[in-house]
């Protein structure tokens, strides 16, 4: 169960990711994983979507693509950063981001060891399917590092963490 709630300050955390560059698409270059400290989101409005894994069916069929399709609507509501999060490593997240066509619009972040999600009380034990401990399926909106919206999926599927629900809450 989530230990974080609307109004709380976001816990400290650091994510790994590979910054996008067009040359990654052709395989003519190797991305370099860099760290992103959550402090970089101070003063910004951030929409963060967490999924149990890159390339897993629910998320890449109907969870994440609507965020890309409605990118301009999010921008129009003053969102500075849209980021997708999973416990996969930065290279997998980068590959998934390229597969879905994120380019430099959506960040694909690695919540290494699901540590940050653990601090929110939002991990899920998927050992039964060979995944280990993963980040739960949720969406969180941070404004100046304060939680403005939290949508945790109660069961399989996409409702409160989907692009429509998050847009309506902004």
């Amino acid at each position: 169960m989530a230990t974080i709630k609307v109004g709380d300050a976001a816990p400290q955390g650091t994510f790994n990711y590979v910054p996008y560059s067009p040359e990654l698409e052709s395989g003519a270059a190797c991305g370099i994983p860099v760290k992103l400290n959550i402090d970089e989101w101070k003063g910004k409005k951030v929409v963060l979507i967490s999924v149990p894994g890159a390339f897993t069916p629910t998320c890449h069929v109907n969870h994440i693509p609507p965020y890309l399709e409605k990118f301009e609507e999010f921008k129009a509501k003053g969102v500075d950063v849209i980021a997708v999060l999973a416990a996969n490593d930065a290279f997998v997240m980068s590959g998934w981001g390229r597969f879905l066509g994120f380019k430099d619009k959506i960040l694909a972040l690695s919540d290494t060891g699901a540590e940050w999600s653990k601090a929110l009380g939002l991990t899920v034990d998927l050992s039964a399917v060979g995944f280990g401990t993963r980040t739960a399926r949720y969406a969180i909106v941070l404004d100046d590092l304060k939680v403005k919206y939290l949508g945790v999926e109660p069961e399989r599927g996409v409702t409160v963490s989907g692009a429509e629900a998050v847009l309506a809450a902004l």
């Binding site: 052709s26 003519a28 270059a29």
Partner: peptide, 24 residues
């Protein structure tokens, strides 16, 4: 601010005068 490799950068007098990213 190297983001991918290989990156080739030309400098002159402290200024970047050119850059190529990728094996091209």
């Amino acid at each position: 601010g190297v983001r991918a490799m290989p990156t080739f950068i030309a400098f002159k007098g402290g200024n970047k005068i050119g850059e190529v990213v990728g094996a091209n």
